[in-house]
């Protein structure tokens, strides 16, 4: 194994090349104001069948409840330690939608997670207007599978956290200084065109992606 490493690297090092010029890197930014960013984000998301709702700090729990009921969701997987988790416990508990905390290691309840969860909710670390993408940095409070296993994934997004491009988000949020175990861009519900180039939604991940934008 180490022998292969040495041989591969030796062969690569044996090739001498003249130093190329220094790569001129640039941050790709757009001069869009917040309304334009929200507008562009919503258009891109709608184009891939994500549902975008503009809501508010006071009414998002109600809006979420209404959306979940209209989709027939009986339960909602959530991150109890997050700020929105506390709000949900206070305001959603009497709605008839069962709140299920993701507070165990996945091995201890895999089957239930896979087979019984109707919907989930997560926050996000911002979004990208240019491509219509959510930025998620799952962590110990909000695990990775929250945004993958339940058929409906709801996301809370603050409008001021929408960046114009991916390149701008990386730059402003300083990603290079410390990335999480897993970072994700999510740009719509799961989809595939592998059967005869016909687009089908909900292949392995969520069939619905619901985004609640809070100004």
């Amino acid at each position: 194994m180490n022998e292969s490493r040495r041989q591969i690297l030796d062969r690569l090092r044996a090739v001498s090349r003249e130093e190329g010029g220094v790569l001129q890197r640039r941050v790709d930014r757009r001069v869009w104001n917040q309304d334009e960013k929200v507008q562009r984000f919503a258009e891109c998301m709608s184009a891939v069948r994500a549902e975008v709702y503009r809501t508010s700090e006071v009414s998002w729990v109600n809006d979420l409840q209404r959306i979940l009921k209209s989709k027939g969701a009986g339960n909602l997987l959530y991150a109890p330690a997050k700020a929105h988790g506390k709000l949900l416990r206070e305001d959603l508990s009497s709605s008839g939608i069962e709140l299920v905390p993701y507070d165990l290691e996945v091995e201890r309840w895999k089957r239930r997670l896979f087979e019984q969860m109707d919907a989930s909710i997560t926050g996000c670390r911002g979004a990208i207007a240019e491509t219509g993408s959510l930025i998620l940095w799952p962590d110990e409070d909000e695990p990775r599978l929250l945004s993958l296993i339940p058929p409906i994934h709801c996301v809370l997004l603050r409008a001021e956290q929408i960046y114009s491009t991916f390149s701008e988000a990386i730059d402003i949020q300083g990603w290079a200084d410390g990335m999480p175990t897993n970072a994700l861009l999510i740009s719509g519900p799961s989809k595939s065109a592998d059967i005869a180039q016909v687009l089908a939604y909900g292949v392995h991940g969520p069939k619905s992606l619901v985004i609640l934008i809070i100004p």
Partner: peptide
């Protein structure tokens, strides 16, 4: 590749499950 502005998922993996994390 497919004329998509971006794919549905862009997954960046930095390492295995860390202490306290519940999946991965």
């Amino acid at each position: 590749a497919t004329g998509q502005p971006i794919t549905t998922y862009f997954n960046m993996i930095k390492g295995p499950r860390q202490p306290g994390e519940k999946d991965g």
